[in-house]
């Protein structure tokens, strides 16, 4: 009558349709042996389900004389049991799920929220670590400042320190020098700066000891103005580090410095 490719899958139901044509011959019942089919398995896993599901070229042929209808009877396919994955409050099919709805939602949101908190913390850490990696390293920062004990520098003396790879002049000026520098008429200067703008404490002159002409290191307490003299090309600076004579275009540079306490100078 029909070919059944996978015997446990397909259940054929033959249907007799009213037909005006008279059958060519009498229907004869023939006795056949019972067909054995394999016992049906419970589809508890997706693999078992895939074995039970009809796939491929399942074909049923029919003829005029023997109309038949083949149905894939899916009504008997068992849904796998997911109760192990379901929440306790909705396991009972007959109970209303409404009373437990907010509790279940709250739990879900709590899981999502704690994940978001962790993600926010991780993102913040990544960003702050990256930004802090852009800042100067500790050894550079340690070299960036110099502390000088001013008690060791006698009056009228110029002491040279090394700071950020450059010579740093610290000059303990005498009262005469201070008075002389404060009296200078700035209109006569090449680079016009008042002495008061170049020192925080008139007694202490802090300078980068680099000639602004070609970068030599000037000699202290030398030159026509009693300040500094650059031996390379003959620039004369006064006791405030201002250019007075010679080729240099600018006054010697004054770095950032402060006196955090009495007798202590911090440059940088």
């Amino acid at each position: 009558m029909m070919s059944v490719p996978k015997s446990p899958l397909v259940y054929a139901v033959s249907q007799i349709v009213a037909n005006t044509a008279k059958p060519a011959g009498k229907a004869v019942l023939t006795k056949t042996e019972n067909i054995l089919v394999a016992p049906r398995q419970l589809a508890l896993t997706s693999y078992a389900m895939s074995k039970l599901t009809p796939t491929g070229a399942d074909q049923v042929s029919t003829s005029l004389c023997a109309p038949s209808q083949v149905r894939f009877a899916h009504t008997d396919v068992q849904v796998p049991d997911f109760s192990a994955y379901r929440r306790d409050s909705v396991k009972d099919n007959h109970a209303s799920s409404q009373p437990s709805a907010t509790g279940r939602k709250a739990f879900t949101y709590m899981v999502v929220g704690s994940g978001a908190v962790t993600a926010a913390y991780a993102a913040k850490t990544v960003v702050s670590e990256f930004v802090s990696s852009l800042s100067a390293t500790a050894d550079v920062l340690a070299l960036a400042k110099i502390e000088i004990k001013l008690d060791d520098i006698p009056e009228g003396k110029n002491v040279t320190f090394k700071w950020r790879g450059k010579p740093l002049f610290v000059r303990h000026r005498t009262a005469e020098e201070i008075e002389a520098e404060q009296k200078v008429d700035i209109n006569q200067l090449r680079h016009q700066e008042a002495d008061a703008d170049r020192v925080k404490d008139p007694e202490w002159l802090v300078l980068l000891g680099i000639c602004t002409h070609l970068g030599c290191v000037p000699l202290a307490n030398a030159g026509d103005y009693g300040g500094y003299y650059c031996p390379c090309h003959g620039s004369h600076y006064d006791a405030s580090g201002r250019i007075r004579k010679g080729p240099a275009p600018l006054n010697m540079e004054v770095p950032e410095y402060s006196f955090p306490e009495e007798g202590l100078l911090v440059v940088g």
Binding site: T102, A106, F107, M110, G113, V117, A120
Partner: peptide
């Protein structure tokens, strides 16, 4: 849980605020 849901999780604004404060 119900109270927390009603107070915090129900609105996106309070949920986001809770995440920031929690972080």
């Amino acid at each position: 849980l119900n109270k927390v849901y009603q107070a915090v999780f129900r609105r996106t604004s309070t949920f986001a605020l809770a995440i920031v404060v929690g972080a």
